[in-house]
Amino acid sequence: MISLETQHFNINRILLLIIGLWPYQRSLLVEFQLILLYGILMTFIVFQLTTFITAECTLDLIYKVLSSAFFYICFAIKYNSFWINADIIRTSLKQLQDVCNEITDKNEIAIIEKYGDKAKRITITILFLGMFYQVTFTLIYIWPYIHHIMAFTNKSRSHSSVHIMTEYFIDQEKHSYLVTLHRHAACCIGLLAMITTGTMLLTYAQHTCAMISIACYRIEHAMDILLKGYKNEQKSCEEIIHAVNIHRKAMNLINFLISNFSGSYFCLMAAGVLCLSCNLLRLTSFTGNIGQLILSLTNLIIQYVYLFLANYTAQEVTDHNEYLFTTVYNVRWYMAPIRTQKMILFLLQRGTKSFHLILGGVFVASLQSAASIASASISYFTVLYSTQQE
């Protein structure tokens, strides 16, 4: 028996528990953890936007504030999407576990294990990339202090930073360590939320791909049984029925999960495009501040990597679905009895209609769509840049 929680989703479970988003065991303490962590993230966004109240509002200030604010708004949207959809995630995991409980063939279990291991490797890789970003973010702020100490100067150094502009309505020089703690806590929470929620959906999608691969295996196995003799026709038909059933369940599972995140994905795409455009603009307005350059560059890398991985995962589901019907077409179905040929004909007819994951209710997730979003962000950047030049 395959235990998804302890075998394939164990890393995702630990990460989600850290930020209070694991959909099981939702005690009062966990609810308090959620409110505290989400509050830290949201207040950091608010204190960035309050800069417009006290500072002179110029185009340069707007781009500088929004490039960072929208980056953290993307974090907040991902965090909130898992919080409000906890029941959906719990139901989806239960349905996936029920499907896995029905799998007893050792070859089919091996397919599930293969895709589960692949999802784990991707999760670990993304986690290390996130840790690298957090270290980079920390070094950007502490390097001036290290340089100040190494220079053996007696002059006092300002604790304020212009990399991310904030307005706390307090003396930030006096309370610099609290401001720094808040900034880095918000970054850590937001980054962890983005990684954990993204890899959770990625792992779920990989298991959907595994189910489609099992359907391919069952069809091939059914034809192998049939070619051994027409006496095995009944058993072959049962295998084809099982293949159709697991394929149907795979499509229903992934559609059920994604459709309930449509509103969150729509907001995420809008915030993401604006974030990319503003960071591109901030990158082009480099004024010699290395910290600003590194921060904008890493923000862009994270956004583009996330955009690519999300759409690549959706593209994998689409490609697996198309491969299933390619498998049906390539098997020697013409040698099967008429009854079996009719069943396969229905499968081939299903293959004429492409399957795509729809994000936000309007966006078809694919590598081509990822390129379109990247192109849109560059187009908006061009418009904003021309406005700034004028």
Rank of each mutant, 00 (worst) to 15 (best):
F52D: 00
I170T: 10
I164V: 15
Y217V: 01
M335S: 13
K249S: 11
W333M: 06
K353P: 07
S377R: 04
V162E: 14
W143K: 05
T340Q: 07
F266E: 02
F75C: 10
F9Q: 03
T43F: 13
T125C: 12
Q95V: 11
V30Y: 08
R218A: 01
H159N: 13
L384N: 06
Y217L: 08
L15F: 02
Y168L: 04
Y230Q: 13
D60K: 10
T50L: 08
L345M: 15
T197A: 11
S296F: 03
N154A: 10
E322N: 08
S161Y: 12
C237G: 07
H159C: 07
G39V: 09
D319R: 05
C100T: 14
F256T: 13
T284L: 03
Q368H: 12
T352E: 14
Q48D: 01
I140L: 05
M335Q: 14
L367K: 12
Y168Q: 04
N154W: 06
T125P: 04
F346A: 13
C216P: 00
W143L: 12
N154T: 04
V331W: 08
I40L: 02
Y312W: 07
Q97F: 08
Q25N: 14
K342W: 11
A110R: 11
L17R: 13
N232I: 07
F363M: 09
Y115K: 10
Q368F: 06
R218W: 03
N252H: 14
V135E: 00
A185T: 09
Y115A: 00
L41G: 01
L37N: 02
H175N: 12
C275N: 02
C267T: 13
G229P: 06
E113T: 02
V65I: 08
T180K: 05
I195V: 15
L201M: 13
E239Q: 09
S259V: 03
M269Y: 02
T352K: 13
I84N: 11
Q234I: 11
Y177H: 08
R13V: 06
K228H: 14
G116W: 01
F128Y: 09
T382E: 02
P23M: 01
L274Q: 00
Y79P: 15
N10R: 11
E173T: 06
L59A: 07
A374Q: 13
V46L: 12
F355D: 05
T387W: 10
R282L: 06
G190V: 11
K231P: 01
M343I: 09
Q7G: 07
R282I: 00
S369L: 04
D319A: 10
V364A: 12
C267E: 12
E220S: 07
W83S: 15
L226C: 02
N289W: 01
L309Q: 03
A376W: 07
F325P: 00
Y230L: 10
I2A: 05
T136I: 05
L253S: 12
F9N: 01
T203V: 08
P337Q: 10
Y168R: 02
V383N: 06
L268D: 07
